[in-house]
Amino acid sequence: MERTIIIANTSNMPVASREASVYTSMTIAEYYRSMGLRVLLMADSTSRWAQALREMSNRLEELPGQDAFPMDLSAIIGAFYARAGYVYLNNGATGSVTFLGTVSPAGGNLKEPVTEGTKKVARCFYALEQARADRKRYPAVNPIDSYSKYVEYPEFEEYISKLIDKDWLPMVNDMKTYLQRGKEIQEQINILGDDGVPVDYHEAFWKSEVIDFVILQQDAFDKIDAVCPLERQQYMLRLVMDICKHDYDFDNFLDVIDYFKRVINLCKQMNYCEFHSAEFEDYRKKLDDLLAEKQIAA
């Protein structure tokens, strides 16, 4: 709490103060940035801020723009996001403001003015998805629709190679490819049926499910699984990518499903254990035995 400042404007407070609250917080953030600090600013939600802008624009009797938002909504959002950044101070030191905003589009429709205005200016986007939430795949961030443009920066590549190792980015990229492939196959299965696709399609699909369940999903209710430090992420990602890279020996798709469900369950139990605890290693051992049953040696 000592490093936290909360600017709270509840929904019943005056509309002008709701509109001002992001600016108040950004000003405080910039103050600390000029002291050479790294500041994280989170706004929940910028859609409510846009609602306040809409209400004020209406009161000023401006002609309404799309969905009755002010015509310059996109410019206002852009100007605000531009205040985030990494700066050189006059004394040569550096400071930064990282801005994380949440957008709550009406009915999950991403083609609405606030989302569009935000996507134009933000470099990074986490798409929360109703379908994932319905299936209790939490956090409900769609791995395919979400993106970070920073991973394309050579500076970032260099940094992450030093921080973790140089295999990290290619590995993440491979993971995305598996997920994409899994999604394509799922669509095929929906059209052609389980029998309509070859067994290795099922294998590829279930590999993407392993990634989804073990790497992407976390249980916020569980003390251990709720937080996954970088070292543990690295360990689990290596483990899962190793599972994905192998070929397996299956007679039919039912075996594939049954087998990978057991794999997923063991990995999930690992996620619930203290990292490298006896229990954790025990599940790892069981997992290795299970993998040895079906994996075809490279």
Partner: peptide, 22 residues
């Protein structure tokens, strides 16, 4: 004679509802 906002609702709909729910 207020300018209608989205779906012909008043511009202050959000504030009006919030006043109740809060």
């Amino acid at each position: 004679d207020q300018i209608p906002s989205k779906d012909s609702m008043p511009g202050s709909l959000y504030s009006d509802l919030a006043k109740i729910y809060e």
